[in-house]
Amino acid sequence: MKKRVGVFVCECGTNIAATVDTARVAEYAKTLPGVVYAINYKYMCSDPGQELIRNAIEEQQLEQVVVASCSPRMHEITFRKATAAGGLNAYMMEMINIREQNSWVHHDHEQATNKAQSLVRMAVAKVLRNKPLQVSTVPITKKAMVIGGGIAGMQAALDIAEGGHQVIIVEREASIGGKMTQLDKTFPTMDCAA
């Protein structure tokens, strides 16, 4: 695998840029072994931001992508898709969190920028060891089970059944209906519960 990493530093409006000098982080990234391209941009997750990634993959013949931005728990899938749209395997991308775990928890610009740099260094080191991964598939048994036959279970079962699939309701009492059958009229309309 060739080492051609592109680093994309997100400013997240001012969420990151107010604390972290993103231009300096991008400049620093260019000095890291394997990195051939680095840029900072206002919103990496936006359409133009993703286009930036797609185009850079093609124009710079990138093999690996690092996105320094918010938490991967937020946008990992977004950037995997953007990486795949650029022609790479989606798993050749690493995200590094410089928002929730950096710009939002530190005040000092210098310290936060230094930390962002070392985080990017960490992500670059990791991504150079990423391997393309293939998604495999398994068959689906298209039959559902609803555990509990109260109003929630009945409603869910009816919706799935109307969608054309088999549903089994498992109810521990000898009748479905649940607590609802014990209720008289219900608020706010005062219609009957059964």
């Binding site: 938490s71 728990r73 937020m74 969190n97 928002r99 929730e100 775990q101 950096n102 939002w104 928890v105 530190h106 005040h107 000092d108 310290q111 936060a112 230094n114 930390k115 070392s118 985080l119 960490m122």
Partner: peptide, 20 residues
């Protein structure tokens, strides 16, 4: 990791020496 994100969401400040 999610908790560290939550700490960020709440802007709870801690030392910048930490690398997660």
């Amino acid at each position: 990791y999610a908790a560290a994100d939550l700490a960020g969401l709440n802007h709870l400040e801690y030392s910048a020496d930490v690398r997660i």
